[in-house]
């Protein structure tokens, strides 16, 4: 196995305030890795930093063997690293089909290839809403569209930022099944989650992040067994 995504000594800042401190992350090809932590622990910031969306970041990031530290976000995306933001960031004025079009990128070797039709099979709810503007969809539908839109770029790896946030339990379960299906397609996933149960159902490995520091790095199983660690760094 080779590392798909590797982050070394990642520091990030908002203005003058430092929010991430020397993060080290490693995601192997085909793996689902969870980044768990509380609200405000630095999960979303990590995702944005990896994607090159923050103004001030230090440290090195590698994707598929290439040093992407100085790349612009669009080059990173074109290299096959997809990003699904926490706030979903659907283009509300655009229809479902148009949202997908924005995400479309050429097919890539070694990554699953997606078309709108295939995505509608994966997300049957969306199929009925093709012409619906993104702003008139429920939270769950928007989350699915956000994932589908990123998949249109045919990524080999995706950064999934809090996919279960604010969704009804039924939808959360559906979301988990979908992510498992993506894993079966061979997609590499870095998943950030507040909901440990959800993360546990999907991920092989986990990092625990707290106040911008990585506090735990190991298998999901050992995290679940470590009562103290969970008490200290996670909400539930």
């Amino acid at each position: 196995m080779s590392a798909m995504l590797e982050v070394e000594a990642l520091d990030a800042f908002y203005g003058r305030a430092q929010v991430l401190y020397g993060l080290e992350l490693r995601v192997q090809k085909g793996e689902v890795v969870a980044l768990v932590g509380r609200n405000g622990a630095g999960k979303s910031t990590t995702m944005k930093a990896v994607m090159g969306l923050l103004a001030r970041v230090q440290g090195r990031r590698f994707f598929a063997g290439q040093d992407i530290s100085k790349w612009s976000p669009h080059s990173i995306a074109r290299a096959g690293l997809g990003y699904v933001p926490e706030e979903r960031r659907i283009f509300t004025e655009l229809t479902v089909e148009e949202n997908l079009e924005v995400g479309r990128q050429p097919q890539r070797a070694g990554a699953p290839c997606w078309t709108p039709e295939r995505l509608f099979e994966l997300f049957p709810n969306l199929a009925e809403l093709r012409r619906r503007p993104g702003g008139q969809m429920s939270g769950g539908e928007q989350q699915m569209l956000s994932i589908a839109r990123t998949l249109m770029g045919n990524p080999s790896t995706i950064l999934l930022d809090e996919p279960s946030e604010g969704l009804a339990p039924v939808i959360v379960e559906q979301m988990a099944q979908t992510i498992n299906a993506l894993k079966d397609e061979g997609l590499t996933v870095l998943l950030s989650e507040q909901n440990l149960g959800f993360a546990a159902a999907l991920a092989d490995r986990a990092y625990v992040i707290e106040s911008g520091h990585i506090r735990f790095d190991g298998s999901m199983q050992s995290l679940l067994e470590d009562e103290d660690l969970r008490q200290q760094h996670l909400s539930l």
Binding site: M51, L53, S72, P73, H74, A77, R78, Y83, P85, R89, F91, T92, E93, L94, E98, N99, E101, V102, G103, R104, Q105, R149, T150, G153
Partner: peptide
């Protein structure tokens, strides 16, 4: 047109368009 759709998307959220691989 694809270009037009990208423009409309960028009008709303320019950064997200970039994160989807579009050279802004």
């Amino acid at each position: 047109t694809r270009w037009g759709i990208l423009i409309r998307a960028a009008t709303q959220d320019q950064q997200m368009v970039t994160a989807l691989g579009v050279n802004q």
